[in-house]
């Protein structure tokens, strides 16, 4: 659970997290947006289905893998937010349409 400090970061970007519009500070990563949205988890692991949220936020741990703009398994902490970006939780292993 995280909160912004709007007095100190005035510029914001609107993104869609799990279908819900959310204003996040400019400079946020998609992982930060998930933390701000207060989701219980960013993904459920492909191995055991256990819930995870980001661990390192710097591209090391890959615990923040999630679906961004329809593409699964993106490293959300390394993806800066953009206007209208759609961020969604990921459940287990990735599926790809054939």
């Amino acid at each position: 659970m995280f909160r912004t400090r709007p007095d100190h970061r005035t510029e914001t970007v609107q993104v869609i997290v799990e279908g819900r519009a959310l204003m996040v500070p400019e400079g946020s990563s998609a992982a930060a947006a998930i933390l701000l949205a207060g989701l219980a988890s960013i993904r459920e692991t492909a191995v055991s289905g256990s819930p995870r949220l980001p661990w390192c936020m710097m591209g090391i741990c890959f615990d923040c893998l999630t679906e961004i703009d329809g593409v699964a398994n993106r490293q959300a902490c390394m993806v800066p937010v953009a206007v209208g970006m759609r961020i969604a939780r990921q459940h287990g292993a990735r599926d790809v349409p054939r």
Partner: peptide, 19 residues
């Protein structure tokens, strides 16, 4: 969920001003 590295929280603060 909710357990993070300290550095992760610091990065969140630096990049997005969030706590």
């Amino acid at each position: 969920p909710g357990v993070m590295s300290a550095g992760a929280a610091q990065i969140a603060l630096k990049t997005a001003g969030m706590v």
